[in-house]
Design a protein around this nucleic acid. Structure first.
Length: 413
RNA sequence: GGGCAGGUACCAGAGCGGCCAAAUGGGACUGGCUGUAAACCAGUUGGGAAACCUACGGGGGUUCGAAUCCCUCCCUGCCCA
């Protein structure tokens, strides 16, 4: 992804593509972005993979970069040690530093695919670098005095948490995130923070701090939260999890995630998760009914290319086309290799489904079969307890299907 | 530090000695209808082939039998200091 400077203001591009939820000062930011600026977005390594919500932010940063601005991808090892209480009914489990560091390493790796970090065109920072060095007394005197507990308690996040419990640890999260912004304002000239819609007040905290502490001017821009068509938050909790980590989600499954998107969201997603020009997006989504599938295929292909590369996207596309249009699917299906020695120890059909990741346990596999949702080479499976030997698996593999959409090939290795 | 109320499956939330692998709702999954869409209808939702095993915050105890009773520890809310 090379930086392409265009004449249009990045804010126009972002609004056109649906990225803008709230801006602290639209006119001021517009003036500021007429020259290259430095901006940041924070990603807390609470898990070892970014998901769809983060991806919106990442794409927004990428648009800034394409317009000649300099994004900072901030990985929040320091803030994760505290835990963001936003949107949470209860405190987070305190993560070990080791766990956080391991996650951070993976997140940094994933971020590096979307932005061009060469020649300082984008910067990757980790707030552990400065947060862990803070001195408590100094911090309270220099930073803490700018925060009003009264105002903080009025914030929605804390109001709800006053009912269910809020520890002092978490109460400090806002101060640390705000300090991050101030720190990068001072060190890197960073004047804009972007974040998800739920981060609005956290981001404003930093903006206010910059004004109070240094008399500086900074801006905040938030992006809409990704919801499904019914307005339900899309994320791990709803099972719609999208992982950018290929260890958790293969390019094929990633591709499938996008192609299975509901009609109502295709246009929005093309705007967010691809770089296709918007007139192209409108052309694609202007179709009716089944023809919208072409828009979904484009979305899936483009999004998979961005995350896993064009070659992986082509393979995923070929596999999907083959599997969902009938014959000749076997070779391209996502594959699970089971060592021959495992067959010698004795495997039943249910084990095959479990090993291929199509069922979570033998019991789950049996339920699947009982509901008529399992098949082998297109034949419906009723007996999940039949023993399978390596000889039952053709040299080019055996095609397993669970439900209508999940396919997997099993080969003996 | 004291008093009171609580901690139940992915979430919310019933159950308060056996009929409890645990109501109900949401979510998710499967089937039907479709366009690999939505909506709708139906079913499923701890593990195990089974016997049975593990589970109702952790540990211990009472009982033929405990999510349910007792002790203790941890955690949360409310009130008092």
């Amino acid at each position: 992804m090379t930086a392409v400077v265009t004449k249009t203001n990045v804010l126009d591009t972002l609004s056109e593509r649906g990225f803008v939820n709230q801006v602290s000062d639209m006119e001021g930011l517009r003036r500021a972005t007429e020259k290259p600026i430095t901006l940041y977005c924070g990603f807390d390594p609470t898990s070892d993979s970014l998901h769809i919500g983060h991806l919106v932010q990442v794409m927004a940063l990428a648009h800034f970069q394409r317009h000649g601005h300099r994004p900072i991808a901030l990985v929040g090892e320091g803030t994760t040690m505290i835990g963001d209480p936003t949107g949470r009914a209860t405190g987070r489990t305190i993560m070990t530093k080791k766990e956080i560091a391991a996650n951070a390493a993976k997140i940094k790796e994933q971020l590096s695919h979307y932005l061009d970090f060469s020649d300082g065109k984008a910067i990757m920072l980790d707030n552990a670098a400065w947060l862990t060095k803070l001195n408590y007394i100094d911090f309270l005197r220099d930073i803490g005095r700018h925060f009003s507990v009264n105002q903080m308690l009025a914030m929605e996040t804390y109001k709800t948490r006053l009912e269910t419990g809020l520890s002092f640890l978490e109460f400090n999260y806002l101060l640390l995130q705000s300090y991050d912004f101030l720190h990068m304002y001072r060190e890197d000239g960073c004047i804009l923070q972007i974040g998800g819609g739920d981060q609005w007040s956290n981001c404003l905290g930093g903006m206010d701090l910059i004004r109070k502490a240094d008399g500086g001017t900074a801006f905040v821009l938030t992006t809409p939260l990704i919801t499904d068509a019914v307005g339900q938050k899309m994320g791990k909790s709803t099972g719609n999890a999208l992982s950018l980590n290929p260890a958790y989600m293969s390019p094929y499954d990633y591709y499938q995630f996008w192609i299975n998107v509901e009609d109502a969201l295709v246009g929005q997603f093309l705007g967010f998760f691809t770089f296709l020009p918007m007139d192209e997006v409108w052309r694609l989504t202007n179709r009716e009914g089944a023809e919208l599938r072409q828009a979904k295929e484009t979305l899936a292909f483009e999004a998979t290319t961005l995350t896993h590369g064009e070659e992986a996207a082509r393979e995923a596309q070929a596999a999907s086309r083959a599997l969902f249009s009938g014959e000749g699917a076997l070779e391209t299906a996502p594959t699970t290799v089971i060592p021959a020695t495992d067959f010698a120890a004795g495997l039943i059909v249910a084990d095959l489904f479990t090993r291929a990741g199509l069922a979570t346990s033998r019991g789950d596999a049996r339920r699947l079969a009982a509901q008529g949702g399992a098949s082998l080479s297109g034949e419906r499976v009723d007996d999940m307890d039949r023993t399978v030997t390596a000889a039952d698996i053709p040299a080019n593999g055996l095609l397993l299907r669970a439900g209508k959409k999940r396919y997997r090939r099993v080969v003996v290795g």
